[in-house]
Design a protein around this nucleic acid. Sequence first.
RNA 1: UGCCCGAUGGUGUAAUGGUAGCACAACUGGUUCUGGUUCAGUUUGUCUUGGUUCGAAUCCAGGUCGGGCAGCCA
Length: 565
Amino acid sequence: MPNNNENAPVDFIRAIVNEDIRSGKYKPEEIRTRFPPEPNGYLHIGHAKAICIDFGIAAEYGGKCYLRMDDTNPGKEDIEYVQAIEEDVRWLGFTWDGPTRYASDYFQQMYDYAVDMIKLGLAYVDEQSAEEIRQSRGSLTEPGQPSPWRDRSIEESLDLFERMRQGEFPNGSKVLRAKIDMNSPNVHMRDPVMYRILHMEHHRTGDQWCVYPMYDWAHGLEDSIEGITHSFCTLEFEIHRPLYEWFLEPLPVHKPRQIEFSRLNLTYTVMSKRKLLRLVEEGKVNGWDDPRMPTLCGLRRRGYTPESIRDFVQRLGITKFTGITEVEMLENCLREDLNINADRYMAVLDPLKVTITNYPERQVEWLEALNNPEKPELGSRKIPFSREIYIDRDDFREVPPRKYHRLSPGAEVRLRWAYFLTCHDVKHDEQGNVCELLCTYDPETRGGAAPDGRRVKGTIHWVEAGHAVSAEVRLYDRLFVCENPDDCEEGLDYMSNLNPDSLTLLKDCKLEPALLELPPESRVQFERVGYFCSDRHDHIPDKKAVYNRTVALRDSWAKIEKKHN
RNA sequence: UGCCCGAUGGUGUAAUGGUAGCACAACUGGUUCUGGUUCAGUUUGUCUUGGUUCGAAUCCAGGUCGGGCAGCCA
């Protein structure tokens, strides 16, 4: 379900829709929007903003939102993307009205309207080459030159256009052009191409067509045919709006209104399909759903919740200002959601063995641990405890720095949900590295509370050795080292700003047993460490545990330590 | 040196002629069986110059800065 944004401020788009309702132009339930992706790539978080706006606004008014594949270029599009897009939209939590629609379903109508445009003297068949058209379009500061075919008769254009469709001419030999104004300061108005010849199989219409409509001609008609009332798109289409309106104006059709908003930019992220594609092709990431990718399938695999993404988009707001949003805001939405909803478990990422010398050998007891302290009503589980456990290497220091609250020789800490523990001896390997701790526990502190009221400064997590599940854990970090990956030295590009440490593979982590049983895509908190998600593809319940780090917990100790160095 | 669009703390935004507010980030401190969460608090802002007005972030004019546009891509 979409977010409930009744309390959200009214942005300029909603203000326009409100006004159209107030003035009586539309009734609330008549509001129609659409999300119109081209099926030539995967959806990313930038699309999520558009999706939330398109679907969200329609839902708020009781209107409808359609999902429409803008498949007017058979050379780039593929059925594979259609399915991926549908899945991503559904995953984000939205349901489109009716079946998925396709621009290609309207090819015949578009063709008929194009014939009408020729009859109205508003379009003509041009026989110049692509290069000639480019040359004669002029420049940003110079006007264009009219095509020698611009003033040919309506009859001739009609005949030629029909024969273009029949397949009489090769690719690139002719185009249908709108007759607008070669002197327009807006270059898109300098007789834009409406149809090009493409002898090419289309993923839906097969070889039925060999002329395909261009975006500007097609898109407004698609909106019009579907009865779209408000057609939302990003800012780069702003300059196309006069064309959008010019094409619809002379035709006896419904006139939607195009409204542009700024696209989403995120720090430490690239968003263009081209740039993402290169990351995939050059093997910098492992596919489109690599958890470091800003694609929806990547975020999903990383462990992001649809709710947190919707919440994020709502908090973003909608404006026409091109800025860059800090990725911390997204992460905050995620943590807020997961803090409430993710069950807690214990996991030791970098194991250090601890032997509890005063604990009976071969004894195992099962201690109770809350599943989620934020929601005690969710109950508890039993976790094993014995003489041998693992703790995280980072939770022990032979020489503790100032303000260090964890384990060190002679110090007492609490083992989460278990006992107080005191370190008495440290074993080293030949290289001098700490390899085992000899500790004692206080049997009176079972469950973690001291009957005598004494306090410990630190609580650390642990996993019992005998029942521990060995697991692979993937620690993901930001993909780029700087806020704007495109900021780089002369001659270099964003690839030079890739973070070499964006993935750390941990092969021998120790997890509490329950983590092996969870199904793929389970979102949990490893206590004191971060939020993790069992991998969609590689985690196999009861056989193989593979967890991805979604986002680390905030770490104020790391800040203190950094400050003191 | 064309046209279109934009400019409010570090970031994203609200205020539609009347007290510049919210969220994120940062920083202090309290609470805490997660150095998590939470709570209390602090720092930081209307691009600029004029004009209109009792009063301007808001309206007008000039400037500055930023984004977009010359595919038979979308």
